[in-house]
């Protein structure tokens, strides 16, 4: 495996930048519909051209998520209720593939588990970092410091209404990449991307050259073509989760997702 934690993520972005390629980041909910299905899917996502997987851990109060990912969390919750179950799944996936993996969840399960213990156990299981959408930098002094000490990627979100002074702090606090939220809204929100995206990316680029992923509301090849030239990575979540949810069974869901991811990859490689 090519390093772990922040180094693993940084290596991925450095390699892609050197090759002049864009990263495809896919979000899936761990355990949706089953842990076995997730474990089966992740290595195949990598083979289909996914560069980094955001692995959702279900939380009972997903305030940043729209209906698609809320429903995925409810499907996953019965067998993915604890971080122990989550780490067990991650360990299984790590035996089969070295794709960078970032946990995407909310702060309370980690606060309850213990931030330091979480980072240690997450790293041991094979995760490279975490995104906590309800932990803004103002509340994340300790989290940032612990992530840095552990060499784990702490990824913070930048919003359409984040002022420049805060954007600078977000860039400084983040390790691995910054997640630029394309629109005001929850995940899977919109058929249209946020306004002034190009202008926002340019403004952010003037502040920092940390790798930049754009997400929320990106689901089509057209979106990918529009967004990818601006940034280092596009994040697709609800589009993937919808295909898993609408398939008659896990195998059909995986097939639909891989076909979809293949289209997005092709679009990214022919910008």
């Amino acid at each position: 495996m090519s390093g772990s934690g922040t180094a693993h993520v940084a290596r991925m972005f450095a390699d892609l930048r050197a090759a002049g390629r864009k990263a495809l980041i896919v979000y899936i909910m761990a355990g949706d519909p089953t842990p076995q299905a997730t474990a089966h899917l992740v290595p195949r996502l990598q083979a289909a051209g996914v560069d980094l997987v955001e692995l959702g851990f279900p939380f009972s109060e997903p305030v940043a998520d729209g209906p698609v990912i809320q429903a995925a969390g409810q499907r996953a919750m019965p067998h993915m209720h604890s971080l122990d179950a989550f780490f067990k799944l991650v360990r299984g996936i790590r035996k089969d593939c070295d794709v960078p993996m970032i946990a995407f969840t909310y702060y309370n399960p980690i606060f309850r588990y213990g931030e330091e213990r979480f980072l240690r156990d997450a790293q041991a299981a094979g995760l490279d970092g975490a995104i906590l959408p309800d932990l803004p930098i103002a509340e994340a002094d300790q989290w940032q410091a612990l992530c840095r000490a552990q060499g784990m990627a702490a990824i913070f979100l930048e919003a359409p209404n984040t002022p420049d002074d805060q954007a600078r702090l977000i860039a400084q606090a983040s390790q691995g990449f910054v997640y630029l939220v394309s629109l005001k809204g929850v995940t899977g929100s919109s058929k249209n991307l946020g306004e002034n995206l190009a202008q926002r990316v340019r403004r952010f680029r003037a502040i920092s050259d940390i790798p930049l992923a754009v997400g929320f509301g990106i689901s089509t090849v057209a979106h990918v073509r529009q967004v990818a030239p601006l940034c280092d990575a596009v994040v697709v979540g609800s589009g993937v989760v919808t295909r898993l949810a609408e398939a008659p069974d896990a195998a059909a869901g995986e097939e639909a997702v891989l076909a979809y991811v293949g289209e997005l990859r092709a679009a990214l490689d022919h910008l």
């Binding site: 309800d134 932990l135 509340e139 359409p160 939220v181 809204g185």
Partner: peptide
Amino acid sequence: GGQFVPETLMGP
């Protein structure tokens, strides 16, 4: 206390 909210709400 605190402000444990998505970044989009920090400005408001």
